[in-house]
Structures are given as C-alpha cells and as structure tokens.
Design a protein around this nucleic acid. Structure first.
Lengths: 338, 338
DNA sequence: TCTGGCACTCGGATCCTGTGAGTGCCAAAA
DNA sequence: TTTTGGCACTCACAGGATCCGAGTGCCAGA
C-alpha cells in the first residue's frame, strides 16, 4: 500500500525534476500531483526512497533529485510508453521518405532524431558484415590501373584502386568481372570473402590481375574502418546543458569525436529488439556519468546497425524512447524497400 | 618612427592577449617584450591605438584588448608567416597519405586540421561541378529495375535507382552502358549534362529506358544537395571557449548544424588562391561576432572546394593560417595523384 | 618626444548577513 | 501502524559592504 505510493512519489519526482530541472520538495509535490496526503507523509516516503538509494539530496536543505538507480527504476517499471503524435509520425515518415540514397537516409535520420528528442543523435551506418553483395564493377582507368567498385545491398558503395604490373585486355577484364560477380553477387559478406578467396587458392595458378582484384575486394569487405562510420547531429542541443558545462559537455563532445567510444555506447543496443537505455555511470565511461544513452538496433532483425541519442540523465525518457523506436522502425522499413 | 613602435605595440598586445587570454597592461608589455621605453610611453601609444579603433578596454581600469579592426591589421600587415615544424609537416603527410578513398581523405583532413589548430575544422566535399565523369555503370537489379552508378574523377560516387515500365534485354543494357559512357566519360559535369541531354532530344524518338537512365544521370549530376556535403571535426575544442558559453558556443554549434551557413562562411574563401581570414563581425552573421573563420580553397586552381577552421577571434592567426594552408596543399596533392 | 610621479577608477575577491525553501523529528491523531 | 501538524534547524543563495590592486590618464620636467 505505502509501497505503491512510494513508487508514485518516485515517478512524480522524476517527472517534476525533468520538467523543472530543480530539486523537488515535498510541498510542491503534493500540490502539483493529486496526492491526497500531507507533505509530511511525502517526506517520510522520500526519506525511505533516499535510504534505498533512489533519491539524493544536493545539500541538506534542498529538495530531492533522482539518482541513476531512481531513473533506472522509473524507466524499467514506471514508464508508460508515450506514443508520438500523429503529426510527429507523419513528419518522420515524409521526411525520411524523401531520401535518395544511403547517405541521405542516415543524414536525415540523424536530423529527424535530434529534432524530435532535442538531444544529440547518433546513427551508425549499416554494418558491412550484415550486407550482401549486390554487384561488383571493375572499371579500367588506364591499361594497368583498375577501379574496383563494390555495391552492397544496403546501398553502400566501397571502392578500391588496383595497380597491375601488366596490362589487361578488355576481354580478360570482362571475363574477370563476370567471374567475381558470379562468385560473390547475392552472398553475405562473410560468405563472399570465403568464396572469393576460393577463386585464387586453388591448385592451378591464377593470373596476377585476378589475385590483385580479389585482394582489393576482400580488403574492402573486411574493412572495419567503414564499419565504424557514424553520423552525429543535433550537437547544438548541447547548449541546453547550461550548467555543468565542464563536467558534462566537454567529455560528451570528446566522446562524440571518438567514434570508437560512440560505437561502444551504441553497440550494447544491437542485442535484442527493444530500445536500450544506459543511465549515467552504468556504462564503462566514468566521464559520461551525467549522460544517458537511448539506443536500439535497426534493419532486419534490428541487427544491421544501431541508432540512438545521447543526453543528460535528466531527460524525458518516455518520449525519447518512443522517438528512438519510431525512427528505427521507419529506417528499417525504408532500407527494406530500397 | 613612433608609428613603427605603435605597430609593434599592437602586435605585442595581440600576441600577449592570444597567449594569456587576459587584457594586457602597459607594464606587463614592456617587461615581456624588449621594448626599450617606459610603460608611460606605451600608455600613450595604447591611447592612440584605442583612439584609432584598434584596441578596446573591457572596463576603465583594465588592460587593452584588440578589436576586430586590430586583429585585421595584425593579420594583414603584422603577421610573419609561421612555418610548421618539420615534425608537424611529416605528421600531416603521413596521416593523409593513409587515406583509401574520398570519404577517408575528407575525414582525415578534418581530423588533422582540428588537431593542428585545436579549433573546429570544416572540410567541404569536392564540388560536383568541378569534377569530370570517370565512369558510368548500369547494374540490373531485376528485369525492370536498374541501379545507375556515377563515378567522378574526385572519387565521389553517386547512385540512383531507375524503375522501368518494361523489361530490358541484356544486350540493350550493354549498348546503353556503352553509349552513355562514350557520351559522358571524361567530360566536365556541366558538359556531360549537355551531352547526355543531347542524346535524348534529337528528332528521332529514343527508347523510354534510355530516357529514364539519362534522367537519373542528369539528376545525379545536378544534385546540389551533394554539393552541400561537409565534414566537421574537433567540436571538443569548443570546450576551451570556457567563458562566454552562451554568447559564443551556442550560435557556433547552431551554425555547425546548418550546412548552408557553413558553406557560406567557407565559400568566401574559394576565390583566389590565398588563405582567407574573416574576423568577428566582418561576415553577415551577427551571432558569430566573436568567432573568426580561416579558410582556403583546395584542389586544382584551389577551386574544387573549401576547407578551414572556425574559432574564437582571439586565436593564434599565424600558426592557424599556416596549418590551414599546409593541409589544403596536401589534400590538393593527394586528390591530384589519386 | 619620452619619462617619472601621482591621483583616480573600478572590477573582482572576500566577508557578512538575512531570507526562505526544505528538512528531520516528535508527539498526537486516525 | 500510519498519517499529520508543529517546530526547530540547516544551508544555499542573494544582496550589500569593504578592501585591494592592477591599470589608467594626465602633467610637469628631462
């Protein structure tokens, strides 16, 4: 019985604190929410919640503020999913539908996500490893110089230059093109790498040009650098941090520069289909103790790559989660169609 | 005679202020620089410089601070170009030489530029209009669906989907591929657009598939959206702004989100070969009155696109200019070779 | 034209104080 | 056992007063 009320108090505190950005006291709480008890009762509850670690006091004579643990409980048990308005949903879909290619999809997603949440948005480009090969093109730049272009199912394009130590006739080039396409087209990257390597590892020797082209392709397919590509947007929203600039914004700006860190933050999200929330110091990054990450996977099985937002622990989790989920769904759908 | 000394005083003040970030007074000035006159003399000079608008006082009993006009004079007449150290030059060249494709070149440039200058770096992707067509590829995705890939001399790749209202035989596809390549390959974008349009505007009717493919190509070639692509890096350096967060960092973060604004800032630079410096409120953007832009063109004739940095008016102009120029040169060279 | 001297200014640091929001605790009521 | 009203207490913060010193402007003399 009181347990229920205590949770209600916690929820109310989280909501108020997110809205006002100020520690919330017992009196204000009873007034703003329809709690039919006196402030003193609330004080007892708050003391209990603080005892259990869900609340904290900035200083003795101030209101309470949720701790990471408090937010965690709020997110896990007290959140009623806040659906986006029809207008918002329409905005997302029309904006994303206008995209012409993969780059455009990613950039538009980052943009719409940062505008919806008013936070810093991060979108990872589709991972190479989950793509299939759509087509391989070999373009002669000069008699002994080739451009190898790898087109993936996700719309991603990788290119590599190949220098030959001998000239290659047009016929041979065409044959090579046909051969690699027959070998790799339609395959998953991992399988394509194996199949291509099979081409050159047989008993009989292969032309050096074939070996060079296959090398370039395998290199492009195993290029983890491009797995790490990321788009960031909405950094202007960092200006709303206002206070705690040095302690909060600086490390965040640094993290945003370090793609590896970002990927790790997002990475936790790709497991499972749901939206993942990392609150404050829950992750491995001490410096980001006052920021939360809301992220999820997208694409087939939500496993193609991740997207999400980074913001202060003090954020509106219900709406943010809804926005992240919605954008992920639309992006998945678009990639599926395109 | 005194004129010379006054300029020396201005230079000294700019240098000291950039180094210490504090208004500089007459006494400190004579001590730090080997000026063989008394503080009182310097005070007279400073008063004169203030009269002429090169200096300002934050408040009555404080030292002097350069005005925009003061920085301008410093940059235009008092700057001895500060060459980069051999180590720095080597770092730039080895780092940039490691790039594998255009994206990589741009990202690495942004990175090295922001690290050298410790400012926010901005690099514009090579403009479409200055590129030539390297190759056009047409890939059948299904009997009535094509992927058109446009490969440009700068290494840029654009792709478009084409839906046909009829099926296209392989032979026809090959013929079409040959035809558009013969028409456009090697041409400047502007000429290629004209030539391609010529293909379909003759008296005799052309197959609808040809028209559709040409449409897609022309669309990709006239896509100004991709002219607006930009890479930004080193935002973490904004943290060093420290004071004046709201007045300086917020508008800057907003500007960095708005590619149009950024392009305009950089855009002034592409004219002429030299490094352009915009100081404080010299540009059209009131909000950026406490930031300067140091930029230059790169590529053939320095006209392919722009790169540069954005930072506080109080910055080390000589080194910054040297760094921007050096990076632009290396990037130009790499694009030329690649 | 430069210099030393001198009075003056004023931002910023430091300390003090009053105020009020908010707390914890206790005894009485429910 | 839980809730409530009362009451003393704490403490951040704003406002005011004071002091300090870096730096200036000006002037008379070198």
């Amino acid at each position: 019985m009181q347990e229920d009320r205590r949770l209600a108090v916690l929820r109310a505190i989280v909501e108020d604190y997110v809205a006002t950005e100020e520690p919330v006291g017992s009196k204000a709480l009873v007034e703003r929410h329809g709690l039919n008890v006196s402030p003193a009762t609330i004080r007892n509850d708050m003391a209990a919640l603080e005892e259990e670690g869900y609340l904290a006091q900035p200083h003795t004579s101030a209101g309470r503020v949720p701790t990471d643990k408090g937010y965690r409980l709020f997110v896990d048990r007290l959140t009623t999913v806040k659906a986006m308005s029809a207008a918002e949903r329409r905005a997302v879909s029309t904006f994303l539908d206008g995209a012409v290619d993969l780059d455009d999809v990613v950039h538009r997603s980052v943009r719409v996500l940062s505008q919806l949440t008013r936070q810093v948005a991060v979108v990872q480009y589709p991972t190479l490893s989950r793509s299939t090969v759509r087509h391989i093109e070999i373009v002669p730049l000069s008699p002994s110089r080739l451009l190898v272009v790898l087109i993936l199912s996700t719309g991603r394009v990788e290119q590599r230059h190949v220098e030959l130590d001998h000239e290659l006739a047009d016929d041979d080039l065409a044959a090579l093109r046909t051969r690699v396409n027959l070998t790799a087209t339609g395959e998953q990257i991992s399988d394509a790498v194996i199949a291509l390597n099979g081409l050159v590892s047989g008993d009989e020797p292969v032309p050096r040009s074939t070996a060079a082209v296959v090398d370039a392709l395998v290199d492009a397919m195993s290029d983890h650098r491009s797995d790490e590509r990321i788009a960031v947007g909405g950094t202007a929203n960092l200006a709303r941090f206002g206070d705690s600039f040095d302690s909060a914004v600086r490390p965040l700006l640094e993290a945003l520069e370090e793609q590896v860190v970002l990927l790790k933050l997002l990475g936790e999200a790709t497991t499972g289909g749901a939206v993942t929330v990392r609150i404050g110091a829950e992750g491995p990054y001490q410096e980001l103790s006052s920021t939360s990450v809301v992220a999820t996977g997208y694409g087939p099985d939500d496993a193609l790559a991740s997207l999400g937002i980074v913001g202060p622990t003090r954020m509106d989790y219900p709406s943010t989660i809804a926005a992240v989920r919605a954008v992920a769904r639309y992006v998945s759908r678009i990639l599926d169609e395109g």
